[in-house]
Design a protein around this nucleic acid. Structure first.
Lengths: 213, 213
DNA sequence: CACCATAATGACCTTCTGGTCATTTTTAGT
DNA sequence: ACTAAAAATGACCAGAAGGTCATTATGGTG
């Protein structure tokens, strides 16, 4: 089903083994990501990707079965890598859940926005129906873990009377709603009316948890 | 820039004027909407649209300049028509804003979901960057009016101490976040994990306004 | 009924682009 | 240096799909 790198099986021969092959692949994935972010799946031509990567079109097909494989591979790798930044930590003793979430979530969101990773989210949203496995992977790797954490801390907050019971713990998606909204909005209207997703999330937390005091 | 109908200028001639022409156009827009919803813009072939409409491909080009014109026309008409259901009414005397919103918003959302109009929203979201004018129209016709209303009633609620001040009135988008989320979620994961958008909005209102009593 | 303006047709053209492969270039081992 | 394995090339192919237009069908009008 996949091709990925065909190099692993032992360097027994004479020819070029070199790290250059890996570099070419890297260049292709980087070029692919950039191109897909810019023009979507069907709007991206393989020749463009190759050109961006500084190689010939045929070379792309040495590394990836076809365009769809390049697309899913690129995004899968990106998502898996990005998921590494999952170290959220735990609430300090005595810290309210609201304060904890502000302290941990906001920097993450700011970082995601600063590094344009919301555009990747948007790409998955826009192309998801045409690449169901990809959407599934994204969900399993990036969304569900977040929802699990949200549920845990929502329960904690409800237990401590900091949060309206049985809402977020039952529908953890509600907490990430503003983030999704921000990703979508900025990709549609961001040029004229950019939305500061972190600031919006901050307001949202205030709204949900009430004013701290 | 546009072609739309070329028929208006007087029926002076002999040939078939008939309402049949209009019917053909209707059939084309209906077929176009269905096809675009199903396969997106680039995934839809003009021959498909024509076939669905029961006409030859050339006929489609008699009514629409090109594929993009069909796409934008179809969606623009749909959005303008759908925007007619804007009769939200006003709060009863003494009614809390929370109760008012529940009473008026939930049926609308339920109706939208029942009639698959969220799929149209999703289509605009997914294709928006490739059709900026369309996104702009959608925003002007469907989103901004809602946001204006939200702001008005948020202010009212804040004045009456029903709502955390300076959040939703400053960021009215926050109130529609769950709706956008629902539209996106259901189009990505709806087959396996459908989300009841109205129910989610209900929970959301509860969360935002607090338990009624 | 004959006429003709208009609607509709579908074969055809053209372009575009995903994908291939014989050939050439690169590099490591001898 | 020589050689062979592997990487890279880019001209080429095939099919798909957007768009055209000479031709045919339709149905008011005189």
């Amino acid at each position: 089903m996949q091709k990925t790198v065909l190099a692993k099986p032992a360097r027994r021969g004479r020819g070029p083994s070199s790290a250059k092959t890996a570099a070419t692949r890297e260049a292709l994935t980087a070029a692919g990501l950039a191109a897909f972010l810019e023009n979507g799946f069907s709007g991206t031509r393989m020749s463009d990707v190759a050109e961006r990567a500084g190689v010939a079109k045929g070379t792309a097909y040495l590394h990836f079965e076809d365009k769809a494989a390049l697309f899913t591979e690129v995004l899968r790798v990106f998502v898996r890598d990005a998921a590494g930044s999952r170290a959220i930590g735990r609430p300090h003793p005595g810290e309210t859940t609201h304060a904890f979430l502000r302290r941990t979530l906001l920097p993450v969101v700011r970082d995601v926005q600063a590094n344009d990773r919301f555009r990747v989210l948007y790409l998955v949203i826009a192309e998801g129906p045409r690449f169901p496995e990809l959407a599934e992977i994204y969900r399993a790797v990036a969304i569900d873990p977040v929802l699990r954490l949200v549920r845990i801390y929502a329960k904690r907050a409800e237990r401590r009377g900091e949060l309206c019971p049985d809402t977020i713990s039952r529908l953890p998606v509600l907490l990430i709603a503003p983030v999704i909204l921000g990703a979508v909005w900025n990709n549609l209207f961001g040029r004229d009316d950019p939305l500061d997703v972190a600031a919006m999330l901050e307001s949202y937390l205030l709204l949900v948890f009430g004013a701290p005091d």
